[in-house]
Amino acid sequence: MTTMDSPAPVIRRPQQLAPGTVAVVVRLGLIACIAVLLSSLSPTFATTDNLLNILRQASLLFLVASGLTLVIIAGGLDLSIGANLTLCACLSAAAIKATSQPTAGIAVALGCGVLVGLTNGVLINRVKIPPFLATFGMLWVAQGIAYWFMAGQVVYGFSPAFRFFGSGFWLGVPVPIWVMLVTGACGVIFLSRTTIGREVYLMGANEAAAVLSGIPVARRRTLLYMVSGLMAGLAALIYVARLNAAEPGIGEPLLLPAIAAVLVGGTSLFGGSGGLFRTLLGATILTLIVNALNLLNVSATWHPFVTGAIVVLAVLADAAVNRGARR
């Protein structure tokens, strides 16, 4: 076979000035713009306290959205994360109250989250329910169980040791931000430096081709829904620790912002592209927008509307950017 003298141009391209890099740069620019705008609007914006506060809010959103990001890259969708968070929060809060052991709460939250994710995986793989329907059903089931379990009560008042996870500081930085950085780094390494991570992209880009390349797609999918559940459980712990209370209304309002964060970050709904760093940027942008609304004295009742609008616009932008890439 001809090798050296083949006409095929073997040019070394600058390796990673791919669309991914462009997307990240665009989002960093957007964050900078909003930040400049906000600091001109309000003198308190650019203070360390306010910035850390924004990052802390972003970190909670990021935790919920991180598992979802993995699932979306793999071509699925997890609508149950919010309700899963609710259920984990309620059960773990009750466990802490019953045993006065934070570790019991941690175990219950993470275990419950993984279990819900596992159920999603089984419903999709075994019962062959489409992902959006399975996880949408799970949303209502988890929510229903949480409401029934709490029976109208609010569990509140936890030990300072537990609340440290939500409101504590380490080296002057809020603990949730540390959690975000650690999980984010783990996730980035998982996606880019493990074979399973690479398989996630292949699954999302073309599931049939992934199956026929010998990738155990069904098991990988279950794993990802379990990770998504695990992240919901982790987020639940930090939420409870931060709010110092648990009630069955806390998780559901997070679903739409989480999806918005993933899409605004630039992970494509069509699967096969995206990443966790982008979701981190997306979560930051979303938090900044909420912060801006507050600074502009817009009533909090507008937040869901704005989030909905952002989701619709982000879907449109995603289609504009990624549809050409499909065919």
């Binding site: 292949l202 073309n206 081709a209 026929l212 096969g272």
Partner: peptide, 12 residues
């Protein structure tokens, strides 16, 4: 439809 992940690179 079944052989390639079209949105991805040759290497992947």
């Amino acid at each position: 439809r079944e052989g390639l992940a079209l949105p991805l690179a040759v290497g992947e």
